[in-house]
Simulated scan of single mutants.
Amino acid sequence: MSLTARLADLGITLPDAPAPAANYVPFVVTGNTVYVSGQISNGPDGLIVGRLGDSMDVDAGAAAARSCALSLLAQVRAACDGDLDRLKRVVKLTGFVNSTADFTDQPKVINGASDFMVEALGEAGRHARSAVSAASLPLGVAVEIEGIFEIE
């Protein structure tokens, strides 16, 4: 089953690829690798803001991370000239969590993105990963995730 068909079966519609907010490109393709710039947590009602360990719990943080994963795939689709079925696998995700100094569940938050990638891509969604704390993130968002992907 194609990735596009799998997403449709799951009832998932990818957003348009977000435009960069500063002087950088949203992705770089070199050979069969796509490096996607950090995607910030954004939902249908706008930015998902908050600080884990303060104004946001782990479940809400995981949902914010899932929103980042949707934007990552949207960027990969754009990098593949609209053909998401060229995606072979997720190589690595690096997740940044806006959290208090004593918050230690960053991996549980970034699981929102990792779990989505496996749900959407099966084994090709399994990836290497880092999940780190940040004292703050752009625009006060809860999560930012960057990714490395292999394409055909």
Rank of each mutant, 00 (worst) to 15 (best):
G125Q: 04
G11N: 05
S114P: 01
E123M: 11
A64S: 02
A101T: 10
S37G: 07
T4E: 15
S2K: 14
A21L: 13
L93W: 01
N42G: 01
T104V: 13
Q39A: 07
L84C: 07
S136P: 04
C68I: 03
R77M: 01
R86N: 04
S41L: 02
R89N: 08
L72F: 01
E146H: 07
R86E: 10
R51F: 00
Y35P: 00
G43K: 07
A124V: 05
G31Q: 05
V143T: 08
A22Y: 12
E146C: 12
L84V: 09
R77C: 00
E144L: 12
A19Y: 00
A64I: 06
G140Q: 09
S55I: 08
R6K: 15
R86D: 08
N111M: 11
V36C: 09
D81F: 08
D115I: 13
G43V: 04
L72P: 06
E119H: 10
A120R: 03
V91R: 12
I148Y: 05
E123Q: 14
M56I: 07
A120E: 01
G38V: 02
A101M: 11
P44Y: 00
A113C: 04
T30S: 12
A124T: 07
V58G: 01
V90M: 13
G31D: 06
E152P: 07
S99Q: 12
N23P: 00
A134Y: 02
S67V: 00
A135S: 14
M117F: 15
T100F: 10
F27M: 02
I48Q: 11
A63E: 15
Q75S: 13
V91N: 10
E146I: 06
E152R: 14
K88S: 08
A101F: 11
G147A: 08
S2Y: 07
A17H: 09
T30C: 04
A74K: 08
S67R: 08
V109N: 08
R6M: 00
F149A: 05
D59E: 13
T33Y: 02
D83G: 09
T100M: 08
A128S: 09
V76E: 03
M56D: 02
R86Y: 04
S41A: 14
A60L: 00
K88E: 12
A17W: 05
E152A: 14
Y35R: 15
D59A: 14
G82C: 10
A120S: 07
D45A: 14
A113I: 03
A120I: 10
E119Y: 06
F149I: 05
S71K: 14
E152N: 13
A101W: 10
L14Q: 02
S130M: 01
K92R: 14
D115T: 15
E123N: 14
V28S: 09
N42W: 11
L121N: 05
A8V: 12
L3G: 10
E152L: 11
A65I: 05
T104N: 13
P15N: 03
R129C: 00
L137P: 07
V97N: 06
E119G: 08
T13V: 13
E146A: 13
F103I: 06
L73M: 09
A63R: 15
